[in-house]
Simulated scan of single mutants.
Amino acid sequence: MRRTVTTVVLLALAAYLGLCIALYAFQRSLIYLPQPRAVGGAENLMALPTADATVLVTVRPHAGPKALVYFGGNAEDVSQNLPSFAEAFPEHAIYLLHYRSYGGSGGSPSEEAIQRDALTLFDLVHASHPQIAVVGRSLGSGVAISLASQRPAARLVLITPYNSIEELGQKQFPILPIRWLLQDKYQSWRYVSHIEVPTLVLIAEHDEVIPRWSSMKLYRQFKPGVAKLEVIAGRGHNDISASADYLRLLGQALP
């Protein structure tokens, strides 16, 4: 009997260890779902000056001080925003970052690489456009808030944001030591105290991907008067941008 119990325990431990190893090995394939680029041609593309990979940006050039820099979700082709953004924000130059392995960009995505590319993009844009609105959706909200804590953004917009990917992962896999396994934690809460620019937090009433509690937890950590919360009624995580209120609220938040 004792031998049977020992065998069961060892098998359970082996299965648990195997699950941990599998999650560690394949975690980035769960976080990043690269999409091809569907909108625009070579005239709408710019390559970032990076040494280790070709990183592409879909652009709509426009002279003047204003620009919109956008970071998309984990399964988003950001180029699809070009027509609507170009029409809705005619006074802004538009820059839509294709993460590594997305939309023709080379390399492999990781939090460190994407954050580094975001800083490079901001510095490049800021040289010509001093009034930059930084916009991040879903996964990109973590990129945007980190960037805005380090660079002089004029405005910050966080669409369906989260408090941290690490926290969401722990909720999804409560028996696993996510804190030790996860490489890309996207701890947005770490940057909130450094944000001084006017910020719009935009969430979907029926978000089925980012729980309301996670978005609200992040929002409540902003300094008083810095962030404004808006809820898009009747929409979920993936169709929030289909609401007529979406571009209207973004436009109100831009410099």
Rank of each mutant, 00 (worst) to 15 (best):
S128I: 07
R137D: 05
V143N: 08
F122Y: 12
A133Q: 03
Y102N: 03
G140D: 12
A113L: 04
A133H: 09
G140W: 04
G106W: 00
V143G: 01
D117V: 07
A133T: 10
P109E: 04
D123F: 01
R137W: 09
D123A: 07
V134T: 06
L119S: 10
F122G: 03
S105L: 05
A127G: 08
V135C: 10
S108R: 02
H129K: 14
D117K: 07
E112V: 13
Q131I: 10
G103M: 11
I145P: 01
V135R: 07
H126C: 00
S141T: 14
L97N: 03
S101G: 07
Q115H: 14
F122Q: 02
V143P: 07
G140S: 15
H98A: 06
L124G: 05
L119H: 11
S105F: 04
P109R: 06
D123Q: 08
H98Q: 04
L97Y: 02
H129N: 10
R116E: 00
I114W: 11
F122R: 03
Q131H: 09
A133D: 06
V143Q: 06
V134Y: 11
Y102P: 06
V134E: 06
S101E: 05
A144Q: 05
G142C: 12
I132D: 02
G103K: 12
S105R: 04
R116L: 03
I145S: 03
Q115L: 13
Y99G: 00
H98D: 09
G136Q: 04
S110M: 11
Y99D: 01
G140R: 13
I114K: 13
L124T: 12
A127T: 14
E112M: 08
G140V: 13
Y99P: 00
I132E: 00
G140H: 15
H126V: 01
H98W: 06
E111P: 00
H126Q: 06
H129P: 11
